[in-house]
Design a protein around this nucleic acid. Structure first.
Lengths: 160, 160
DNA sequence: ACCTGAAGTGTTATGATATAACAAAAAGGA
DNA sequence: TCCTTTTTGTTATATCATAACACTTCAGGT
């Protein structure tokens, strides 16, 4: 059990169902869910926190799945392109997608105390940014929306 | 002249007024607007584009203002803390603030073709992200809001 | 079964971004 | 002046990311 959207939940279940969904998605789209890629997703899913590429690599190395940086970056490249993971730009770190399957524009609430991350949905084309874009004729391809702050759990423990 | 919010404008004037505003702000707040810091802001202002720290350093070096990375990072640290510049997380690059003086939550429209950047204002606590944050009790300290896409100028020149 | 081409993997090296640490100099107040 | 704080100069190193190339694996066509 760990924070998910800052709430406790059945984490083992959450991991296994997501892995199965990823498997199904790959089968349906002709993508190869190789051992390295599968294990990388599993590692990211093990925490609802952003992991650095080298942290991921260290975990992969423990399983004998590779030791050089490209191993981790290739896996992350696959996972992010497939929509199974996202990069948190503000942290140079990576996190498993919480809404696997849907083609979406994620937004993140990142706790700077405990490093846990919650994923929210946004409609980038709505809101002030979308208005501004339309007003000046800017075409949006991708959005990076991240809020840094303090999650409810950490607010309850002010001096932890 | 270069793009500003993707529109042409009197750029020399824009640089000098912003520098003067920064000077006034520093005087009013007891901050030291040293030659390195002033020149760094001037360099960032010279383009409405995001510049890498090492690009900035190269420019500073031309003026004999330093050659080692900390020189650039210290200047950027000062400028960002003073609100004179922002970091574009999606590019690991830095840009002069277009709304100097106001304490604000900037949002950016970043053209991936010509690298020009427009700065918009947002109210982070409004919109979907703010709703979600309030709903789960998350306290937002800082937001990163960036849209990557194609500016109107580059849409007009599809095969440039 | 065989070839072939595309995708994936192993590995070395390097590039790009950023900071730690500490000494020297400058600025500003008591 | 003297002392403290801030800024600067410099070396070294940490951290994040990719280029390049050889080798392997696997699916599809014949």
């Amino acid at each position: 059990m760990t924070a998910f959207g800052f709430h406790a939940h059945d984490h083992a279940h959450c991991i296994s169902t997501t892995l199965h969904r990823a498997e199904a998605y790959c089968a349906a789209h002709g993508l190869k869910f190789t051992p390295i890629r599968r294990r990388a997703l599993e590692i990211l899913l093990a925490e609802h926190r952003a992991l650095g590429a080298y942290d991921l690599l260290a975990e992969l190395a423990k399983d004998g799945l590779g030791t050089a940086p490209p191993v981790a970056y290739r896996a992350l490249d696959f996972l992010t392109k497939a929509g199974f993971a996202h990069k948190i730009e503000g942290l140079n770190a990576y996190i498993a997608c919480a809404h696997l399957g849907a083609d979406h524009s994620p937004a993140f609430l990142i706790c700077t105390e405990c490093k846990s991350v919650a994923e929210a949905e946004t409609q980038a084309t709505q809101g002030r940014l979308g208005e501004t874009a339309r007003a000046v004729g800017f075409r949006i391809n991708r959005t990076v929306i991240e809020a840094l702050g303090v999650c409810p759990n950490c607010q309850d423990q002010p001096c932890a």
